[in-house]
């Protein structure tokens, strides 16, 4: 049973082409010239209730535009969206009561006032009974440590604190679906981790359906069971983060700490990609070279104090997909 259903969704933006100079601006005032940009190009997918889906793609891929259509802010150029039986744009108000949305680059908090004032306003906006409101605030305080900074004007908060408050504000009314648009953008490692943990927790505990937009692969790997990759307005991958790794991560890296400094080690099929004396990195294609044999042949010849085996970095895989180095094949990608 799918909860969010998207079919052949398209969004075109009409852009006013501005000309340079006085004559040019006169001309564009009198005879405006337009250019169409297809930001979202015929995408389809469906999301089940309680699912947590990552939506990843480079800047300008069409992520925010998709989220704006899913939340009812924008009307699709064509195609249709059903979220929980409603059309987000034509049933906007009804739909809005059940969804939450976090936009990492914007805030919904009143900038000059303490965050608690915005929360108070939201209580009325969502018509929450006082008891429920208090209970939710209590939970968010426990999980996000809101009380440390909730009485300070928002403009004085750190980005991480502001984001925590913003996330709480978007979840205060117990939404059934929550959309995150780059919630970790600009955050440091610790703050990022807090956001990821919280999002994961809410998804598991309250069975909230979530769509998580990012261009940071770390976000997806740590939080989502399923990912969609979007590029140039098209979905080029729909599956688990693991599958993409298995299929496309050809390389493995073995890092060995030798007891003594070694140099000039040569093994067929294995490339030395970093040599720092005692610590050497070997890179090899996992289907051609067995890690176990490599390790045992090295331990026979040299004295080894420690080693680590690294799977290919999914970040690199994604980058290669964007750059066209990897072509998705039919059986892995739902829509190519």
């Amino acid at each position: 049973m799918s909860y969010i259903e998207v079919n052949n969704l398209v969004k075109d933006y009409k852009i006013n082409v501005k000309k340079r100079g006085i004559l040019g601006s006169m001309q564009s005032l009198l005879i405006p010239e337009y250019k169409m940009i297809r930001a979202v190009d015929d995408i389809s997918f469906s999301i089940k209730k309680g699912e947590m889906v990552g939506f990843i793609g480079p800047n300008g891929a069409g992520k925010s535009t998709t989220v704006k259509m899913l939340t009812g802010i924008l009307m699709p150029t064509s195609g249709n969206i059903i979220t929980g039986g409603l059309s987000p744009h034509s049933d906007r108000k009804k739909n809005a009561a059940r969804i939450g949305a976090v936009f990492g680059q914007r805030t919904q908090l009143w900038w000059d006032l303490p965050a608690e004032d915005t929360f108070d306003l939201l209580r009325y906006v969502y018509k929450m009974p006082e008891k429920k409101f208090k209970a939710n605030m209590e939970t968010f305080n426990e999980l996000l440590g809101l009380n440390e900074f909730i009485s300070k004007p928002v403009r004085q908060l750190s980005l991480g604190q502001r984001m925590r408050a913003d996330i709480a504000a978007s979840l205060i009314h117990d939404p059934e679906i929550v959309f995150f648009d780059e919630p970790t953008i600009g955050l440091d490692v610790v703050a990022k981790q807090k956001v990821r943990d919280f999002v994961r927790h809410m998804n598991k505990e309250k069975n909230i359906t979530m769509l998580f937009t990012t261009h940071d692969m770390g976000d997806i790997e740590k939080t989502c069971d399923r990912m969609l990759i979007i590029d140039k307005g098209k979905i080029i991958y729909d599956g688990t983060p693991d599958d993409i790794k298995k299929k496309y991560a050809k390389y493995r890296t073995l890092i060995i700490d030798f007891v003594e400094k070694q140099s000039g080690i040569e093994i067929p099929g294995v490339e030395v990609c970093e040599d720092k004396g005692n610590k050497v990195q070997f890179r090899f294609i996992k289907d051609e070279v067995s890690a176990q044999e490599l390790i045992s042949s090295l331990t026979k010849k040299y004295e080894i104090s420690d080693f680590t085996l690294q799977e290919a970095d999914i970040e690199n895989v994604i980058r290669e997909i964007y750059e066209g180095g990897i072509k998705c094949d039919e059986n892995l990608c739902g829509v190519c």
């Binding site: 704006k68 009812g72 009561a97 949305a101 936009f103 914007r106």
Partner: peptide
């Protein structure tokens, strides 16, 4: 400023 987008996300006119 995008404030309008935020209004469109709320169950109010």
């Amino acid at each position: 400023s995008g404030e309008l987008d935020r209004f469109l996300l709320r169950p109010l006119g």
